[in-house]
């Protein structure tokens, strides 16, 4: 009897959790197809695909999607190019100021975002970076530095030194050791960092708006004007579109990190 009871509790909790997570999404999904919806009806009075065609035929919105799909991957690449070598250095070398820099990486995230962006804007005016692609990239990369440094640094540090030494002993140069042993073993951590950076860039709105609007609108900054200028259903369509990359990435990550052999990399004794 107690077992049945505890199972019941678990099922109930799972249901509540599912409702909590899926409920708003479901509401969003329904809303995106609703012609009109009168309170307190559970379902809309009529269905339509109008909002989707509004989104897909609106040039400004299309450009926003394009911009987002441009900035997010570039941000990840630039951030990786800058931060991964730093992460490796943090993990493997003892150098003066190591702790200072490691903590300093948090600086960009420890101030109120808007304050940071306003002072950044002042700097960008001086450097002629306002309303430029480069300026937006700088803002996006700044937001990913913490992920791209700390998570890969932990991943690199977790690679046992003896695995690298075994590679050297087997005849590999330092560079070959890094690419054949260290990097593949640290890859799950780096992938996680890349995904988080991608999503953070994809979601970045405040700084992008300040530096890029109105010339460069991305999906999240476009949301602001959508909410003000279009029916709520269009916003619903747009937020579903905004969620697609997150969901897709999480599914991919689940398959490759949790299910794949890379997970075994974490079990090394």
């Amino acid at each position: 009897m107690p077992r049945v009871l505890s199972r019941g509790v678990v099922v109930l909790l799972a249901a509540v959790l599912a409702l909590f997570i899926i409920g708003p999404l479901a509401w969003l999904a329904v809303r995106a197809f609703a012609a009109s919806w009168t309170y307190p009806d559970l379902l809309p009075d009529a269905w339509t695909l109008r909002w989707w065609s509004v989104v897909f035929s609106d040039r400004a919105l299309g450009v926003a999607v394009q911009n987002s799909l441009f900035f997010a991957p570039i941000t990840v690449l630039v951030s990786a190019a800058i931060c991964l070598p730093a992460a490796y250095a943090f993990a493997r070398f003892e150098f003066p100021g190591r702790r200072f820099f490691l903590i300093g990486v948090f600086a960009a995230n420890s101030f109120p975002k808007m304050g940071l962006f306003v002072s950044l804007a002042a700097l960008f005016y001086a450097l002629n970076l306002m309303n430029t692609i480069l300026g937006i990239l700088v803002v996006h990369v700044l937001g990913t530095v913490v992920f791209m440094t700390w998570i890969p640094a932990a991943a690199f540090a977790a690679v046992p030194r003896s695995l690298e030494e075994a590679a050297r002993d087997a005849g590999a140069s330092k560079l070959r050791t890094f690419f054949s042993v260290t990097l593949p073993i640290a890859l799950p951590g780096i992938l996680v960092a890349a995904i988080m950076s991608f999503l953070s860039s994809f979601d970045e709105a405040q700084g992008t708006y300040l530096v890029g609007a109105p010339d460069y609108m991305t999906m999240p900054t476009q949301m602001y004007s959508l909410v003000l200028n279009y029916p709520t259903q269009v916003a619903a369509v747009f937020s579903i579109l905004l969620a697609i990359p997150s969901v897709a990435l999480l599914l991919a990550a689940h398959k490759h990190i949790v299910g794949g052999h890379l997970a075994e990399g974490f079990q090394i004794k």
């Binding site: 046992p160 075994a166 590999a172």
Partner: peptide, 27 residues
């Protein structure tokens, strides 16, 4: 170490977890 004619067996074996047994030996 990569240029020495010696080969070492490590205390914790230091096998590369992302390679199969054959890949480890063939590396």
């Amino acid at each position: 170490p990569e240029h020495r004619p010696s080969a070492m067996v490590f205390q914790n074996y230091a096998l590369w977890p992302h390679m199969t047994v054959a890949k480890n030996v063939g590396f």
